[in-house]
Amino acid sequence: MLHRTILAVALTSASAVHSQTNLPFTLDWRFEGPAAPYFAAIDNGNFAALDLNVTVAAGDGSLDAIPKVATGAFPVGMADINSLIKFLDQNPGAPVIGAMMIYDKPPFAIIGRRSLGIDDTPQSLEGKILGAPPPDGAWAQFPIFAAENDLDVSAITVEPVGFPTREPMLAEGNVAAITGFSFTSYLNTARLGVPEDDLVTLLMADHGVELYGNVVIVNTDYAEANPEVISNFLQGVAEGWAAAIADPEAVIPLLISRNPAADAELELRRLQLSIEDNVATEWVMENGFGIIDDARLATSLDQIATTYEFVNAPDASLYFTNAYLPEGGFSLAE
């Protein structure tokens, strides 16, 4: 009788595991602090409770993640919505769309040193050397930032730099400022020994840039065939972010278990900065997590058009859908 009971339990467990939908998810970047919420959703059982077996893959930028989802190699992923907009303009009809806004404020920023003449005003960049990696997402938005703040770009010397040398050049004083993600370049420069009170962050979103940031993207063919899977996935993502916001320290070990070489203290700071500056914004806390403001998206399209020539007339409905979100989005309170 005991053997039959054990066998029945084993078969039931196997059936439960088998019933879960395997869902590979690609990030746009490496396993750093802001990736911890997705591991929290896995390890805390949020995805499993929704009958999902989610696996997370590291990425190498939005231009790497978007094609992975568009081709169906990954049904879901993470990418910068501005890169997605340009991708869809250049690849009309590609089966990919934004389905859940994560960064209400994008982390595009200028990181400068006060000792080298950079202060809290964009105009302080004039007459200085700005280090910018050509493929950098923040550098791609710099023309909008410059236009919104009436900067004399001819008075700014732009020094093309590589990603590995960007923060070292700022730390060594070879450039007065750099473009980058706020929570990445700031902390990486401080880690190189630059006192934090010597660093200034000019978040582009605080200086006239109305763009959105990273968004969960879905393959539209997969989503249309599996709408409940996508809705459940987005719910699990929201629960993971709610856990990270409630206790950032608790989710960092889940990240470190996937990236043992990472500095836990550094990644905690990175996660906290992303929460404060990009995710749990005043607008999100008042209106809901995951949704967008249609008027703001329209404004962002106008801003993109100031530096990018659309091949096709921009259409907001091609870039974001709330079809898989609850009305009013999610609450970030656990």
Rank of each mutant, 00 (worst) to 15 (best):
L130A: 00
L192D: 03
D51F: 07
A79N: 02
A10P: 06
F47Q: 00
P134G: 04
P168I: 00
A14M: 14
P326V: 00
V209P: 10
L23Y: 02
T184S: 10
G33S: 03
D247K: 09
N174P: 09
V9H: 14
S83C: 05
N22G: 10
A8M: 11
T189K: 07
T307Q: 11
P143Q: 05
I81A: 02
Q235T: 12
F181W: 14
E282R: 15
R258C: 11
D294E: 12
D64Q: 03
P134M: 05
L203D: 08
L234A: 00
N219H: 09
T12M: 15
P134Y: 02
I144K: 11
A171Y: 00
D277T: 13
D277A: 13
D136R: 06
P227H: 11
G173W: 00
G240N: 02
R270S: 10
I6T: 10
F183D: 05
A262F: 06
G180L: 06
L170A: 02
L202W: 01
T71C: 06
S13G: 07
S115V: 02
A313T: 15
I97M: 12
S317N: 15
A16E: 04
Y324R: 08
D80Y: 05
A10Y: 08
D315Q: 05
G290M: 01
G98V: 01
M285N: 14
I110Y: 04
D152C: 08
P133E: 03
N22S: 14
M204K: 07
T220Q: 10
L297K: 02
